[in-house]
């Protein structure tokens, strides 16, 4: 079951094509990464999904239904460029935003109180946003995004401007929401966060999809059969004589490239047969960051 499904979505502006034939699915209850350099078309895509704009052609389904005017109530969106009314009080403001998402005043009050309590900020109810620090108002913003229990939560660079403690708080909350069944579409260009949090990603550049799939599958696709071994004894000369390409050797750790078609089990067998004591053995997978940079660079050429 997919919470979100895009089929051949195209969006063109006067002088450029922002989204060019994009299709992908977001599985229900997953964390999905929407990646791409600045100006790749991420915001244009998100604006289509949030019904702020409409696609020129192509289809978008939310929970199996074509996007309609009721869907915004099922989506929680935290834009990258975000803000709140500076002169309004925290409570008033959250109530307003929650009601815009279709909650009744009573419902909204109950839910907001629970959330504010959870973040330990119930005492801010009557404070003005303008008097809060940036990190504090980010918490308020996050609550505004998820208070109506959306089935799809879209977070655009949610950790920008947060200190590590607050960033962790939000990250934990994202996991908990996922556990409760919400799906999270997570847009960023901070790859280490993606690797940590996301199950599936789509990488777009210049409006087109470059990569799409599970994070592990993509990493596997891009692996270069590099292995790192920690050992005691003499390994390098043996590897050399066996014809392996040694990339680096530092102390008791050696990184080398396997010959094509060799599985890690075969490799390990070969190592063990030598007179070496293996302490650790692992395959080096490329980081998403590396994949991102090579992919984007090659598509820009």
């Amino acid at each position: 079951m997919n919470v979100l499904s895009l089929q051949n979505v195209v969006k063109a502006y006067a002088n450029h094509i922002a989204v060019n034939d994009v299709s992908f699915d977001v599985k229900a209850g997953s964390i999905f990464g929407l990646l791409g350099p600045n100006g790749a078309g991420k915001t244009s895509l998100i604006r289509i999904i949030t019904t702020i704009t409409a696609a020129d052609t192509g289809k978008v389904f939310l929970n199996g239904h074509p996007l309609n005017h009721l869907h915004p109530n099922e989506i929680g969106y935290m834009p990258e460029e975000r803000g709140l009314y500076k002169k309004m009080k925290v409570g008033e403001q959250l109530l307003y935003l929650a009601q815009l998402k279709g909650l009744s005043n009573r419902e909204a009050k109950i839910k907001l109180k629970t959330w504010l309590e959870k973040f330990d900020i119930l005492s801010w109810w009557d404070k003005k946003i303008g008097d809060l620090s940036k990190g504090m108002s980010q918490k308020v913003q996050f609550i505004a995004t998820i208070v109506h229990d959306p089935s799809l939560i879209i977070l655009d660079e949610p950790f920008s401007g947060l200190d590590p403690i607050n960033a962790n708080l939000i990250k934990d909350e994202i996991y908990q929401l996922k556990e409760k069944g919400a799906s999270i579409l997570f847009s960023t260009h901070r790859m280490e966060q993606v690797e940590e949090i996301c199950e599936d990603i789509v990488l777009i550049n210049k409006g087109k999809i470059l990569l799409y799939g599970g994070v592990n599958a993509i990493k596997n696709d891009f692996k270069e059969h590099k292995f790192s071994v920690k050992y005691s004894g003499d390994l390098s000369s043996q590897l050399n004589s066996a014809g392996y390409d040694i990339i680096s050797a530092m102390g008791n750790e050696i990184i080398f490239k396997a010959q094509n078609g060799q599985s890690s089990n075969d490799l390990l067998k070969g190592l063990i047969s030598h007179n070496v004591n293996i302490i650790s053995f692992n395959e080096i997978l490329p980081s998403l960051n590396e994949i991102f940079i090579t992919k984007v660079a090659s598509s820009n050429e």
Binding site: T50, I52, H69, Y77, P79, R82, L84, K86, L97, L100
Partner: peptide, 17 residues
């Protein structure tokens, strides 16, 4: 202008037209 400068407008129009 205030809503635009505050950048709250994008949050708002993801909730209503």
């Amino acid at each position: 202008m205030e809503e635009k400068i505050n950048r709250i407008v994008e949050v708002l129009i993801s909730s209503l037209k």
